[in-house]
Design a protein around this nucleic acid. Sequence first.
DNA 1: CCAAAAGTGTTGGAGTTACACCCATGC
DNA 2: GCATGGGTGTAACTCCAACACTTTTGG
Lengths: 235, 235
Amino acid sequence: MTNNTTETKMLLAVDCIIFGFDGENLKILLIKRGFEPEKDKWSLMGGFIKANESLDEAANKILLQLTGLNGVYLEQLYAFGDPARDPDERIVSVAYFALIDIHKYETQLSDRYHAEWFLVNEMPGLVFDHGQMVEIAKQKIRYKAALHPLLFELLPRKFTIPQLQSLYEGVYNTKIDNRNFIRKLTSTGLLIKLEEKDKSNSKKGAFYFKLDKKKYKAKFQAFLNFIPNPENLIS
Amino acid sequence: MTNNTTETKMLLAVDCIIFGFDGENLKILLIKRGFEPEKDKWSLMGGFIKANESLDEAANKILLQLTGLNGVYLEQLYAFGDPARDPDERIVSVAYFALIDIHKYETQLSDRYHAEWFLVNEMPGLVFDHGQMVEIAKQKIRYKAALHPLLFELLPRKFTIPQLQSLYEGVYNTKIDNRNFIRKLTSTGLLIKLEEKDKSNSKKGAFYFKLDKKKYKAKFQAFLNFIPNPENLIS
DNA sequence: CCAAAAGTGTTGGAGTTACACCCATGC
DNA sequence: GCATGGGTGTAACTCCAACACTTTTGG
């Protein structure tokens, strides 16, 4: 770093890409922008970073404001800094994505921000580079969820395997063989079968499961490839 | 986003974690900080973002200044924004990591910035949160290189398989079976065998290889897991 | 001729895919 | 009793890991 006295200060923002799962489809929460520029267009929820706030704090605050939720999955995605990304002013934005249980979302907050859930595949155009942010978030989720049980963050406390399969099929836009899917899932040991059945989708009913949270945390990072035994690495 | 007229502007910096491979060990390029605070301590190379500069441009510029190199592998790593990360002033820093062929590094630039290569395992303490940045960069490289041929970015135009193996062994701090390693490498189809041998490490000599760049670009993203045929996905 | 590194094949086990039928129940 | 979605088992195959000896040649 060189001497900084002549350097330009600029605004720093955080934008949140919020995903939810309604039991059938992956959705994204957008707000109708209430001010210029681009007033009344759809947008991600965001905000400026205060002088004494960390990036994570800012992102959590925004998420709390819009959803009423605390302590949900939130991950820094990427910093967007094209000088032309906001036509008015130089603003660098650090994007975060969140995965929430859509049922915990506090619906009454929708009004305040004119928020709405959209199917990710039927999303309106967004302001500035927010569309690009969403694309990168989707890519990241597809990548990470192929290796780690990330999508479980979207599930309610109890869920059925057909629901989970529908989630994976939606995220990857593909059909999955249900026998193999179940085998893979149960072999992870992450699921605990409950007595209760969900009969809303079939007459037979599908058993609910819940997540074994200890195993989930322990196994989240497990994966495989170029290196023979990645879990046995020395350091 | 809410009205921004009252929001705080702040300095935005880019810091580069620069890795190189000397044929035996993974190294990192550090500079001796020439100004206060923390003058004369070891540091990453960084700089402030100008008003009309994108983040990528700023990172590339810094890399060029310090190494004389353009067009090398450079990836945004993470944005660090703890309000206390710089004791003097609020500075948010976007960290990038670079993988370079250490032989292309222009040594005469070392003097200007008091730069030096260190073994990543024998690195001095760094200013501010730069040590943490390096840790996260190492983690990221270990993760990504286990799935993708990332470490090839560190190699010179021609290299031997024992060199490459030593690189992997260094990055993962593990021993790799050379038969399996060679098989895995050759099965990727990324390597082209040359006539020439490198006799600097043995009497028998090891054949040089070069990278098949087209296949490298085409196959960089290939990998596998939760989803049966990730390469056959519909979208 | 010998030390030191490079190069080479095989086998067993684990994991993954492909595939089709029966079950439970509400109507 | 039948339509609907839920649940189950097996066999072939592919991939990966484990394993040790021969080759080359400069000194």
